[in-house]
Simulated assay, not measured.
Amino acid sequence: MNRYFLLLCVLVFTGCSLQPSQEDSNDATELTVATFNVSMEAQNYATDNENGTLGPQVLIAQLASGENPQIKNIAEIIQRTRPDIILLNEFDFIDNPKRGVQAFIDHYLKQPQQGREPIDYPYYFYGQVNTGLPTQFDLDNDGQSQGYGADAQGFGLYPGQYGMVLLSRYPLLRQQIRTFQRFLWSDMPNALAPVVPTTQEPFFSAEEWSSLRLSSKSHWDVPVNVNGRVIHVLASHPTPPVFDGDEDRNGRRNHDEIRFWQDYITPGKGSYIYDDRGVYGGAKNNAPFVILGDQNASPDKPGDTPSAIQQLLASPYVNSRFTPASEGGKRSWPDKDYGLHYTANWGARADYVLPSAHFTIEEGAVFWPQKGDPLYRLVEDRSRSSDHRLVWLKVALK
């Protein structure tokens, strides 16, 4: 199919309530923004009998019940932190919002968890992602072309695995949303294309390289109307820079997925970027933004290829002066000076809330109660909620 025809195809954007949020009438200048990798994907819930039929129906059943212990804990964490805007990573894509994101809101968030005050998100966005999207190629060069797994556009055992959902208490400017699911990796200038170390030959064939998308899930620019001020939420979830070989194909892709935002927010550097409607260009000059998501990169990991996250944190267009922390992370990693900033129980700062320089940061934290705290039950292990922690910031426009 012609590539430029694909660029003109518009994603089906699902789910939007027409009911106004109560907060819309407030004259607030403060905003709490969060990101949370919630591990709400089918493999986390499937029984042995379901492993051969993994797909969105597994999560659908858990959302409909309102009784899944892990999802109830996730809802309680959100009710305790009460963000105005939150990105959920690893929330399987379900194209029927009533059975997907709306079911999560109705059956979990709007229900009191352990006596906490319910919370509603009248506005939300989620679209299709590249994980599990089949290709005809042997992208991991293992001699088999399976279509799914490592041979998909983004690693996934079924389409929509590890998807994303954005929840908001403020209206979304839906006609202005930009998605970059179909942007090709090869169309990024100076892309870190992987090579075979022993020969320095390209790891991907020419046909594979010209067909492979940059986003392992997707990149989104979602404008939110906060009391008349438009804030752009830049959401993504780059591939982990591991599970590959000496060619470092995942590490290089992770780098370029993060670099995408660096170019997008830097005036004059994003002209090559096109969205799924075929519109070119980066962020509008001087538009406030917040970058959200599990970036799968930590600035204290010198082995990253190379550290695009360090470059993003150093951008003059990003306010990175405040680094969220937790006592739980510090106590879990006492031998790591940077451990108090970790957001994943495997030892990394992987999840980020990065406001633009338009904002001042008033406070923030990583939700990671330490052992002995009554709330430690929410994070004791992955089965309780996730192997990641919710990260939040309270910000105000200057």
Rank of each mutant, 00 (worst) to 15 (best):
370 Q>L: 00
148 Y>I: 09
138 D>S: 10
376 Y>S: 01
130 N>E: 02
113 Q>D: 13
373 D>N: 14
226 V>I: 14
126 Y>S: 13
281 G>P: 09
62 Q>S: 12
274 Y>E: 06
267 P>D: 14
59 L>P: 10
37 N>V: 02
58 V>T: 14
2 N>Y: 08
105 I>M: 11
364 G>D: 05
163 G>T: 09
130 N>Y: 01
23 E>Y: 09
236 S>Y: 00
25 S>F: 15
41 E>L: 05
325 A>M: 06
204 F>T: 00
101 V>R: 08
52 G>F: 07
351 D>M: 12
61 A>W: 05
157 L>Y: 05
202 P>G: 01
62 Q>Y: 05
187 D>C: 00
13 F>H: 10
48 D>R: 05
170 Y>F: 15
274 Y>R: 14
17 S>R: 14
334 P>F: 10
393 L>G: 05
63 L>S: 11
355 P>S: 08
330 K>D: 12
181 Q>C: 04
107 H>I: 06
62 Q>G: 07
242 V>M: 07
313 L>G: 04
264 Y>H: 02
356 S>F: 01
36 F>A: 07
17 S>M: 04
28 A>F: 09
283 A>Y: 01
178 R>I: 02
129 V>K: 05
39 S>M: 07
193 A>I: 08
88 L>N: 06
323 T>G: 00
362 E>C: 00
307 S>P: 15
224 V>C: 12
319 N>L: 03
227 N>D: 10
